[in-house]
Amino acid sequence: MAEPTNSGFGRVLVAVYATFAVAATARAGVQLATRLEQAPVAYLLSALAAVVYIVATVALARAGPAARQTATAAVTFEFVGVLAIGTLSVLNPTAFPDETVWSDYGRGYAFIPLVLPLVGLYWLRRTAGTRR
């Protein structure tokens, strides 16, 4: 049987995800509201990151197979996103003039954005209840 993703260690994980959902949303909101024209692509990616964190937070906080699938997709996307944006921002810093949550692999957030999806995937696997 699959175990819920939102209790035990999952409760702490959801708290961390919620923190990043709020942080990314607030950051993207300020960027889009005050200076969208300066770097529209970077700020829209910033908003995308925010949406991914929100979806991951809600999906991890809910129990059930559908939520688990959603969470797996969101957390996987998050990992791809932090690697892609992180690499782009290192190779081409001018494309990302302002920090997003995923810039430089999440350096501005103590690299938690880089580690978090790995922890999330580990937890989803751990609670899946399938034999490995």
């Binding site: 702490v12 708290a15 961390v16």
Partner: peptide, 22 residues
Amino acid sequence: PAAFAWARMEPGRWGNGVLAVG
């Protein structure tokens, strides 16, 4: 307040963990 509410549902190891994160 959010951390407190979320932590209360699971007192012990993980509730304290949530408070620490908060």
